[in-house]
Amino acid sequence: MFFYSIFYVYVFFVIKYTQFPIILNDEMRSIIGQNVFRDSNFLPFANLKYNLKYIILNTVMTIPFGFGICFLIKTSFKKVILLGFGLGFSLELMQLIIALIVGFTFRYVDVNDIIFNTCGAVNRI
């Protein structure tokens, strides 16, 4: 029960830091001014000036996921890869859906984040 509790708290913090705040204010929209599709990256490693800070943060963010999931369910290397990919894909998909609903993006939707999230989850094994 202890590991389940810690894991769920971790998942809630990941969602908090990757999805919020959601800005619905038109004044903020004009200040931020990010277009959903113009500011998104759907091609892996297309942005050659990708910031090292975001690579490290996306990788480190999912290391506890790869570590904790092994305590909760029986896993294999392949299953951890799929679950890590699923986590990264879900986070980016939620960011895209929220951006499409609101009409602009406060968070950048980037396929590289999915790759680095998967690497972080697998890094534990």
Rank of each mutant, 00 (worst) to 15 (best):
F42R: 04
G86K: 08
I69A: 06
I115N: 05
P64F: 09
D113Q: 07
C119Q: 04
D113F: 04
L83G: 03
M61G: 00
Y8A: 14
C119W: 07
E92A: 10
Q95H: 11
I81V: 14
K79P: 04
I114L: 05
M1K: 11
K53G: 01
T59A: 11
I15V: 15
N35K: 00
E92W: 11
V80S: 10
F2P: 00
F2Q: 13
V122N: 00
L52C: 08
T59H: 05
D26W: 01
Y8F: 15
L57D: 00
K74N: 12
F13L: 15
Y17W: 12
N35S: 14
V111S: 04
T75W: 05
V14S: 05
N41L: 02
R29F: 09
S90I: 09
I98K: 07
I63R: 02
F104G: 06
I81S: 09
S30F: 02
V109M: 03
A46T: 10
E92L: 11
N47I: 00
T105I: 07
A121T: 04
M61Q: 07
G68L: 14
N58G: 07
G120V: 01
M61Y: 04
I98M: 13
D39Q: 07
V60P: 01
F2C: 07
L83T: 12
N51S: 12
L57V: 10
T62I: 02
V14P: 09
M61T: 11
Y54P: 01
L82H: 10
I125M: 10
I98V: 15
Q34M: 12
V14Y: 10
F42E: 01
A46W: 06
R29V: 04
V9E: 02
V36C: 01
G88Q: 11
P64L: 05
I6P: 02
P44F: 11
L72C: 08
L93V: 14
L100T: 11
E27C: 02
D113G: 08
V60R: 02
Q19I: 13
I55P: 10
F65T: 06
S90T: 14
D113I: 00
I97K: 11
M61W: 00
V9Q: 06
I32S: 01
F45G: 06
F65Y: 13
F12V: 14
N47Y: 05
I22G: 06
F3C: 09
S40E: 03
F42G: 02
S90K: 02
R107P: 07
Q34T: 06
Y108S: 08
F77L: 15
L72A: 08
I114S: 06
Y10M: 10
V80L: 14
N47S: 03
K78R: 14
A121N: 01
F42S: 03
N117T: 02
T75C: 15
C119F: 13
F71Y: 13
D39G: 07
K53D: 00
K49P: 00
D110K: 06
Y8C: 15
I125N: 04
F104S: 05
G120P: 00
N112A: 02
F67D: 11
V111T: 08
G86V: 13
A121R: 00
N47D: 14
P21R: 05
Q34P: 02
F20C: 12
S30E: 13
R107T: 08
R38N: 06
D110W: 09
I22Q: 09
